Amino acid sequence: MKNYLKLTHFEVHRFAKLYAVLLVVTLLSQIIGVFVISKRFLNHATEIMVQNRMNEAQFMEEYGPISMANITNSMWFVSPIAFGAVTLLLYVFLIWYRDWFGKNTFIYRLLMLPTERINIYLAKATAIFLMVLGLVSWQLILLSLETKLLAWLTPSALHVELPLRETLQSLDFLHVIIPYSIMEFFIHYGLGLMFVFVVFTAILLERSFRLKGIIFGGIYVGIVWLIFLSPELSFSRSYFFPIEIFLIHLLLSVIIIGGSIWLSYYLLRKRIMV
C-alpha cells in the first residue's frame, strides 16, 4: 500500500504543472466570461429601455433576466471544460507512452522498482481519477464564485439567481460531470474508471505484442464494448425491468474492471520484460 501511494503521488506530481495550467485557464476564461456577458447584457438592456422608454420591470417581462444559464451556455464557460476533458483524455495514453518513448525510457526504471508491477498500473489509474475529481471540484467552486460575481455585476431587478441544480440543467454535459445524486456519481465515474482500465489494458497489450498488440488491443476493446452492451443488443431487455437491466450492467462493469486488472497484472509480470 505504501508503494502504491508513493507511486500515485509521483504520477500526480508529474502532471502538476500542466494541471495548474488547466485550473488557471478555466478560472480566467470563465471569470472573464462573466464580465463580458454581463456587460453585454446591461448595454443591450440599457439601449432597449432608452429606445422603447421601458422601465426595468417591463424589460424583464418582455426580454427576461440574466442568470448563470447565460454564462454556462457561452464559449467562455464551455471551452476550458472541453480543453480540460480533451487534455485528460489524451493523458490517459500519454501517462504510459511518455514513460516508454520519453527521455531515458523511464518505464524500465519504474518496472525495476521493488514493488508489485500492478501498483504502477493502479497508481496511474488513480492519478487520472484524482485529477478528474480535482477539476470537477474546482468547477463547483468556480460556479459558486461566478454566481456571486454575476449578482454583484448586475442589478437585482435584471438578474435572477438560479439554484445549483437549475444551473447544471442549463447545459446537458454539466449534469454528466457534476451528477445530481451520489448514485449518479458512482454510475458516471464508475463508467469513466472502467474506460480508463480498459484503455490501460489495451495499451499494455500493444506494448507486449507490438504490431500484433495493436490488433489485440482493438479486439479487446471491441469485446469489452460488446459485453457491456449485450443487454441492449439482446432480446432479453424486453423480459427485464429497468432496475434489473441496471444491475446487469453493474455486474458486467465489475467483471470488465476485474478482468482488465487481472489481464494487466499478467501482462506486466509475464509479457513486459525489462
Rank of each mutant, 00 (worst) to 15 (best):
F35S: 02
V21D: 05
I32H: 03
P114H: 07
L90R: 08
S29Q: 08
K212D: 06
F235D: 04
G33P: 07
E206W: 12
F129G: 13
Q51H: 10
T167I: 11
S170R: 02
Y266M: 11
Q51K: 12
F241W: 07
Y63P: 02
F209R: 09
V160E: 08
Y220S: 13
L174V: 12
P155G: 00
D172N: 13
V78D: 04
L164V: 10
V254L: 15
E61D: 15
R210G: 02
L247E: 05
K148A: 15
N119P: 01
A85T: 11
L110V: 01
K212Q: 10
A125D: 14
V12R: 07
E184H: 09
I243F: 04
A82N: 11
A69T: 07
F186M: 14
V50D: 11
A85S: 13
V36E: 01
H159S: 08
S181T: 15
S181R: 10
F106R: 08
S264L: 08
F216P: 05
V221A: 13
A45R: 03
T26S: 14
R98S: 09
K39T: 04
I257G: 01
I107N: 09
L229I: 09
S74A: 05
Y239T: 08
S38T: 15
Y63A: 04
L233C: 03
Y91E: 06
L145A: 14
W152M: 10
I272E: 00
L18C: 09
G213A: 02
F93W: 12
T8I: 06
S29I: 07
F41T: 00
K270M: 07
G84V: 07
I227T: 03
V12L: 15
L150E: 12
I255Y: 02
G84H: 03
V198N: 09
G33A: 06
V34H: 00
R109Y: 09
P163S: 03
Y97G: 02
I227S: 01
L174K: 07
F228V: 01
A20C: 05
F93D: 05
G102L: 08
L89E: 07
L94R: 05
E62V: 04
F83K: 00
A123P: 03
G258S: 06
N55P: 00
S238A: 10
N104F: 13
L22K: 04
E116W: 00
I95G: 01
N3S: 14
L153C: 10
I128A: 11
V21R: 04
Y180H: 13
E184L: 12
K2Q: 14
L263H: 00
V86I: 15
R271Q: 14
W76H: 15
V198M: 13
L252K: 06
E166A: 03
L191A: 11
E206H: 13
T105R: 05
E61V: 09
I118M: 09
F59N: 12
L204A: 04
M194G: 13
A151Y: 10
Q169W: 04
F173K: 12
